[in-house]
Nucleic acid binder design. Structure first.
Lengths: 151, 151
DNA sequence: ATTCACGTTACATTTAATGTTACATGATTC
DNA sequence: GAATCATGTAACATTAAATGTAACGTGAAT
């Protein structure tokens, strides 16, 4: 199947929305992501359900942030978009009859569980506010290099 | 896309082959895996290329192990079957123009890199011999419960 | 009333693994 | 040496899940 890019896309959008006054339409967001307004609505529906964004219809409508960036982690966003499968590998038989296969599955799945726990842990450690800060730092840093008075 | 089960399947097969005298045909292996001889040949071709198995044509032909189980790790098998993508998530743009997207990608990919390193490390720590031993221990344990003379 | 923008359904496309068919090649058996 | 067995390989079909698209409905603002 394809690579699931919902987490990355939503993080991208949320950070833009955070630095944007007023609602953003699905049309504009879609252009940002190089996709289609329907895909945007579909994916953002998960964020709305989680209470992270709001949507308004009609003139002047669109999407707005409805949360504290410091209180939502990358993991929260991952879950809000459906908490999709993380791994592209794995056995087909979760509960095989064959004892050999059981041993194999336990070994591989054990390693995968550890890796998933680490990934989930890291995603949970980082808030959207932290990401926004990293962006600001990078930009400020760039500006400082040319205009030290920013300090 | 589908879940990649080549690693699990090949480990499963290799352990069976290790406890089997003489060559196993793709037909038999396919039946074990619930698949098709062509799929078996296709996947095992990677193992043959790596020197882990041999294949013989004609009467009495089939697949045989051609390695020391203690010297091949789960990671080696993973690589032999093509070292496929491990994650089902990720950004679509490896090198985005948008600075916001860059920050997002670095955060997500950083976490993924750590998780992948852990997974790869764990797979590299376990040899096929270790897996075979786990199987024997499990079986011996089960037999001992009924027939202690096995000890 | 019109326009804008979201909400939703239904269907098409994409992608990589997997499944399948067909045929070639080499080894063994008789 | 003909038949059979088993692999090798190419070509194409199927599958699954995300993504892309079209169509239509609903509510809000002008």
């Amino acid at each position: 199947m394809r690579n699931d890019s919902r987490l990355s896309r939503m993080l991208h959008v949320l950070l833009h929305m955070a630095r944007h006054d007023g609602p953003m339409t699905s049309e504009v967001v879609a252009r940002m992501l190089g996709t289609n307004p329907v895909v945007v609505r579909r994916t953002m529906a998960g964020l709305r359900k989680a209470g992270y964004v709001r949507s308004e219809k009609g003139h002047g409508g669109g999407w707005t942030i409805a949360m504290d960036l410091a209180k939502v982690s990358l993991l929260d966003v991952h879950r809000a978009v459906g908490g999709p499968r993380i791994f592209a590998i794995g056995s087909e038989h979760p509960n095989p009859d064959c004892a050999v296969e059981k041993v194999v599955n336990e070994a591989v799945e054990g390693a995968m569980r550890e890796a998933e726990a680490l990934l989930i842990g890291r995603l949970g450690e980082v808030s959207l506010a932290e990401l926004a800060k990293r962006f600001d730092m990078r930009c400020t840093g760039a500006i400082e290099a040319r205009a030290p008075e920013q300090t």
